[in-house]
Each structure stands twice: as C-alpha cells, then as structure tokens.
Write a protein that binds this DNA or RNA. Structure first.
Lengths: 338, 338
DNA sequence: GCGTGGCGGGAAAGCGCTTTCCGGCGCTGC
DNA sequence: GCAGCGCCGGAAAGCGCTTTCCCGCCACGC
C-alpha cells in the first residue's frame, strides 16, 4: 500500500515536456500550448492516472477549491434543505463543500470560520441564525473580517451581517401575513410558541406575527419561548396547556416546533384543528405529508441555499448584496375556522 | 482588502526564533522546546492572529485534516442523521468534513472519491447504497483502491466493499423480524413497496421480509418497486391500489417511502390502520410525531454515522472491520390487528 | 539583411509549512 | 579531566504545484 501518488513532474517527464507545459495543459492557464504537446500530456496523464494534488494547487494559487457551509444541526430539515441547495451549486461549479455544524453553540461559528480560513476556503455560507450574544457576535464579526481580508467571500442566510452578501427570508412579512390569514379564519385569541429570545429569526417571526394581529385589531398573543427544536415545541405546548390561557390558535415559529407542539396537544387529548388550530413556519418538505397537514409559511429553502451559494461564488463587486425571498402563507388542515 | 495572511515565518521572526522552533511549538511535534521560547512563540502567534495554512501543512505532511462524507441526498433524513453522527465525531477529532452528494447517480460516487483523493482527505465515509450497476461499481472499486493506496481509509455504511471497514445495519434480520411481528398481528396478505431493484439495501430488506413471511407460513407478498423516495412510495402505493390485490398490510422498505404511501392511501380514502396497516424501516426521528405513528424497524442512524467515522479515524490494522448494528422492531399505531 | 514583436517552451523561484540533519552545549561516568 | 552522549536550536531541503521571466524561433516590415 501507499504507492506514492503520481505527480505532475512524472507526467511531464514521461511526456517529455517541462513541468510548466504540463501544468499549463492540465490546469487551464491563459497561455497556449501547441496541439501535439498538449495531446501528449493529456494522454500521459490519463495513462498514469494523474490526479492533481489539491493542497499543492491551493498553496501555489493561494486559494482552494473549498467552500464552507456552517449550520447548527444538519439533522434539522431546515438546514439540510439549505445544504442541498448550497452543495448543488458548489458541486456544479467544481467546488467541494466543507460542512461545519455548531450544535447551536454560538461560539462554534467563529471557530469554524477560522478553520475554513486555515483551509483558504474560497467562500463560506453561514446558515445559522444570528444570536444577540454580544461576545460571540463580535468574535464572529472579527472572523468574518479576517476571512474576507484573506480574499474569501461570505454570505449569510437570514442574518444581515457586516458587509456580507445575504439571503433574507421574509420572516417578518410572512409571519404578519400568516397572522392576518388566521385572523381571517375568525380566531381572536392567539398563543405563540417562540424560539429562544436571543435568536433573531425567532424574534422577527414573533414581531411580524404580533404586527399582523395588531393589523386585525386583535389583542397581543400569549408568548411562550422554547428551544428551536421539536422538543422545544413540545415543552412550550405543554406549558401552554397548563397555563389555562384559552387560545384558539397557536403559532409555532418553526414547523419543527409545531410538530413537537402537535404531539404534546395530542397527548393531552386536544384535537387539531377542532379544539385548537396550529400553524408553523418554513414548510419543511419532509413534513408535508403529516396529518393534519400543517398550515405554515412556505420558504423556498433549497432555493435559498442555491442563491446564497450563487452570491458567494460569483465574485461580484465589493458591494454587499441582499436578496429577499418572500414567504407564502399556506393554509392547510391544521387550522380551521373559529 | 487582501491583507496577506500572517505566516509562520513572520511569527518566528517576531518572536526571534527559527522557523523550525516556531513550527515545533505551534503544531505538536515530538521534539521539545524550552519553556521560555515556547511561551514567546505562543504569545507572538496569538498577538499576530496567526492561523496555520492548512494547504501548506497538508502538502508538507502529505495528509490533510479533511474527511469525506458521501451521501445520495442530504435532504433525506436517513442521510442527514448519518451525516450528523459523522460530523460530530470528525469535529471532535479536529477534522473537517467535506460533504459530497451524488443525487443518486452511481457514477458520482467515484468522481467524488477522486476529488477527495485530490484533497488528500484522510478518510472517507461512503453512506450511499450500493448498486448492482457493474460499470459504476468497478470504477468505484478502483477509486477506493487508489484512495487507500494513497494512505486514506474508507468506511462504508450498509455496503460491504472490498477491504473497507463497514457498518452493516441488520436489514435482512430487521425486515424478517418485522414480518414475523406483523404476521403475529394476524395479517396474511402482504404487499411490499420495494426500492429500485438495483439497490442492495432495498433487496436485502425485501428478502428479509419474504423470509419472515415464510417463517410464519405465509404466502409471498405482492411486490411493487419504486424510487427510494417519498414520491417513489406514493407512486408505488397508487399502483398497489389500482392492482386490486387485497393485502391487509403494506411494508414500505423505507420510512420516507412509507410517508409517501400513506399520503396516497389517504388520498384514496383508505384508512390506516383500519383498512390497511403499513410499516416502514429506519425510524426516522423527524417522522416520529406523524399520525398515525409509523410502525417500523429502528436503526440508530446517528450512531451508525459515529461508528463509521470512528472506524475510519482510528487507524486500525489492515484488517477490514465490520460492525453490525441491529434493527429493532417498533410497532406503533399504523399497524393494527387483523 | 537586419531589427522588431509575438509566440510558445523551459528554468527556476516561490507558496507556507514539516522534518532531517547538523552543531553546540552541558552532563555523566570513568 | 575528558570522551561520549542527550538535548535543544537552527539551517535547509523538500512537499507538488503555479507563474514569472527569459530565450529561441519565426514572420514581418523597412
């Protein structure tokens, strides 16, 4: 084992050309190489099974074929959808995706960025939710600066960051429209299962929802915060049930939380939507077949990943670009007239 | 922008030591460095914000801090769970995961492996399902050889491959046990929604299920093949419905397919489990809250990812190791007595 | 006929690290 | 008191590639 790798030098020697020529042929350069030399090199490379050493190329070019992707939890369908979009675009561009997961610890984001910088990643997509944790934020900001100084681009999904390209889903507007739609069904008493208050996404959705209720002249909702996960939704719903507030409609700021909440409600014998209506946010594809079908705000998650990757890959100016994607209210069986 | 990166040389100069010493301090070497020099280097590195150039290290060491992970579709919860396990272990070991997706095209697997080889990835976990496509298989086999020759380790999940470490879920045994359990509920007429016949996983599960039915003295099931996806399950179930076979119980070889199948049945007004029972395989966590709760065979997916990563990261002997993980039959509300 | 340019090939200088090898120094053991 | 050894620091040789620079060659213009 460990038969050493075929190098460019070997190919060049075998083909009877110089290193420079071989390099020019095998890796697009601006310089031309004559037809016959070129063909000879190509053939030799093929015969020898030459595979360029990406580290060496990265070192020589000071830029690698890697693009980073940072998510909280790849298991969460929200992130895996975005990841699918990012990888599709990156792979189409001949780049490899390096996946980093934070496990929802804010400080990991900066660490991962630093690693990515060490690898001279060409670009990185930050899909995590922005927190309001000051220390983590400023450490992250510093890393983002360092990363772009070094020549890499960074794009964020759903979090506007200092001078980075951004894909911004209509969290506020979507939640607001949802609130109005639910009010249109006749509901007057609402509860919101919110995410942790330091997550900006959670806050935006909550704020939008409140605004929508206000639009309809409805009293502010009861708000219960929980983790941004299935279990968080479950716990929040349990808390809601014991709180004796008599809401007729619950908005969970995330489809995944809504799933947990529905489980809790069912467990307690609360019927959906007869006893209580429930809506989520994201429209996770994997969850579309659940019963009752979940009312939600559809976000084109994979597309958002593609857009982010697109932004980060075509160099663009120095200008930070922002692409807004709208959420679309989708009312299904989990919400009924009141 | 593009303020050049701080290099080891700068740190060394600033700290007044040689390159060698700085390298020894900053990146664990066997050689000792005196207390005061060591501390000086560390401090200088910190002040300057030194981050080692991973490409250069990889080149010099001829081995990178990258481990590959190849899946068909990161959006599929089966794969995202495995991915979570792999990344957890890899990140804990200070390595970065590069994620490759095949989009279920068999030939992509070899391509990705080749890219990974170019990057001198230390190891790779192949989580895709093995196909019986001869050409793709032999191309893949060649790449696996090349990869390990070059010093990288490769592990497969659910597909025994030439001399690679493997994590083998009990597909056959699990499906067999499931069949017996369902027979125990009194069912006598079964249908199986199988995956594409060239996928070994699909075939194993089907074979195991048949064996289980045989154990119980039950006639072979009607088999309908479809894609290994939600839509595949939907289509297969539709076909089943039009086929007029009067099965009382359906086994979809995958939870995701089962979800599609349930959607199809519901659409046609078939009640689950009153009119027909249905079971899946995998026990996808995201799908555990669906109604009716899906009977299935539980596989510890994240753990499988962890095991695979563990195998591939601790060097081990030349021996190819195989770890079997058992599936556990979980009967829930989607299957009823007949 | 000779100067001028353009073109394609090759030599060689890096890119930022790791690691081998060498040399100096302070000990130990006789 | 000195040979010998272990220890630690530094010089320098790569690792495999890209790219600059130079050089020879040919076509062309006067």
């Amino acid at each position: 084992m460990s038969a050493r790798q075929v190098t460019l030098a070997e190919v060049a020697k075998q083909a009877g050309v110089s290193l420079a020529t071989a390099s020019r042929v095998l890796n697009g350069s601006t310089r031309q190489v004559s037809e016959d030399l070129s063909e000879r090199v190509l053939r030799t490379a093929e015969e020898l099974g030459y595979v360029p050493n990406a580290s060496a190329q990265a070192l020589a070019r000071n830029s690698s074929a890697l693009v980073g992707l940072v998510v909280h939890d790849i298991t969460d369908p929200y992130f895996s959808c975005i990841a699918a979009g990012v990888t599709r675009v990156a792979e189409a561009a001949g780049l490899s995706v390096v996946l980093g997961t934070t496990g929802r610890r804010p400080e990991r984001e900066a660490e991962l960025l630093s690693t990515l910088r060490a690898h001279r990643a060409r670009a990185v997509v930050l899909a995590g939710s922005r927190t309001t944790d000051r220390a983590a934020q400023s450490r992250l900001a510093a890393e983002i600066d360092a990363f772009s100084e070094q020549g890499g681009r960074v794009a964020c999904v759903s979090q506007a960051k200092l001078g980075t390209d951004t894909v911004v889903p209509g969290n506020r507007a979507g939640a607001r429209a949802l609130a109005r739609a639910l009010a249109g069904l006749g509901h007057r008493k609402f509860a919101v299962l919110g995410g942790p208050s330091e997550l900006v996404v959670a806050r935006d959705r909550l704020a939008g929802f409140k605004a929508g209720l206000a639009d309809a002249g409805i009293a502010p909702p009861v708000v219960i915060n929980g983790a941004f996960t299935r279990d968080g939704g479950y716990a929040a719903a349990m808390e809601l049930l014991t709180s004796k507030s008599r809401s007729t409609c619950v908005f969970a700021v995330t489809d995944v939380m809504a799933m947990g909440a529905m489980a809790a409600l069912r467990e307690r014998g609360v019927r959906i939507p007869e006893d209580i209506s429930i809506a989520g946010f994201d429209d996770i594809p994997t969850l579309r077949d659940t019963v009752p079908a979940l009312s939600t705000v559809r976000l084109p998650l994979e597309e958002m990943g593609e857009i982010a990757a697109g932004l980060v890959l075509d160099a663009g100016g120095d200008e930070a670009r922002t692409v807004r994607v709208a959420g679309e209210v989708v009312l299904r069986a989990s919400t009924a007239h009141n």
